[in-house]
């Protein structure tokens, strides 16, 4: 399989966020990912697209070791972030997830107050400074502060779906991560809420590395700087988003983005 790896567009000064080499993932006897190699640049949005079941979410969960929670998942290959091997024998998944935050497909706020949701991360990681400031700052960065500042003690589950998802983003930002992994974060949301989340991604990429799994090619085209196309557990190609959508080098990518399958 010829994987487009040495693309100069993906390297340069921003290279070296995530470096993935020859990554295989097995669920029991079933191989879900085959020989994935790619470099995910920092302070940019990298979109991962592909048809359902192509392994894009599975791949995303390799980047913060969430696949550890699947009892029969097994990994081979190399994944590092900022030069640090995430699967080294001594690597601590808790410390990794603390640095590499994640947003899920369905908003999953805890059945607690809005305040407690945002304060959760700092609390469990032993922060004993002023939580009020962190909560406010995180909610502001997630563009939710103005909507909830008068009801911080109200249950988070009373918020709308879009607000819940922004709350989950605030919750992830509260531990000051270096990366946000977003697993189809808008698939459960209406177009207006989706627009707000996309705006948010564009502003957050100034400070954070964002990896976005999406089933929407329009979304990938709108918000991402780089796009990777997955098919059947393999990376077909990765390039600058403009190139993927205007002049992809692989025929299958072209077929997919022009809607011939998927």
């Amino acid at each position: 399989m010829a994987v487009v790896m040495a693309n100069p567009a993906v390297q340069g000064s921003r290279a070296g966020g995530f470096v993935v080499r020859n990554l295989d993932l097995f669920y029991g006897a079933h191989q879900a990912l085959h020989q994935i190699s790619m470099t995910i640049p920092e302070r940019a949005v990298t979109a991962i697209i592909g048809p359902s079941g192509c392994g894009k979410s599975t791949f995303l969960r390799c980047l913060n070791r969430m696949n550890d929670l699947v009892p029969d998942a097994r990994i081979q290959g190399h994944v590092s972030f900022r030069g640090e091997d995430l699967y080294a024998p001594g690597a601590d998944p808790m410390a990794i997830r603390y640095r590499i935050g994640m947003i899920f497909q369905k908003p999953n706020p805890f059945p607690k107050s809005i305040y407690e949701n945002v304060a959760f991360g700092p609390r469990i990681n032993g922060y004993d400074g002023d939580l009020d400031d962190i909560v406010e700052a995180s909610l502001r960065r997630a563009a939710l502060w103005d909507e909830v500042k008068d009801r911080l003690r109200k249950p988070a589950l009373a918020l709308s779906g879009g607000q819940q998802q922004r709350l989950c983003i605030a919750r992830a930002l509260a531990v000051n991560p270096e990366v946000l992994l977003m697993d189809e974060p808008t698939s459960a949301l209406d177009p207006i809420a989706t627009g707000k989340i996309e705006e948010l991604m564009t502003s957050l990429k100034q400070e954070y590395t964002i990896v976005l799994v999406t089933h929407s090619m329009q979304q990938a085209a709108r918000v991402s700087d780089y796009t990777a196309f997955f098919l059947d557990g393999r990376l077909v190609e990765m390039d600058r988003t403009e190139r993927i959508f205007s002049a992809p080098s692989d025929r299958r990518t072209e077929d997919y983005i022009t809607g011939r399958f998927g």
Partner: peptide, 12 residues
Amino acid sequence: SLAHGAYALGAS
């Protein structure tokens, strides 16, 4: 999904 949310924040 609730447990995953907490794990993703670095919870033990």
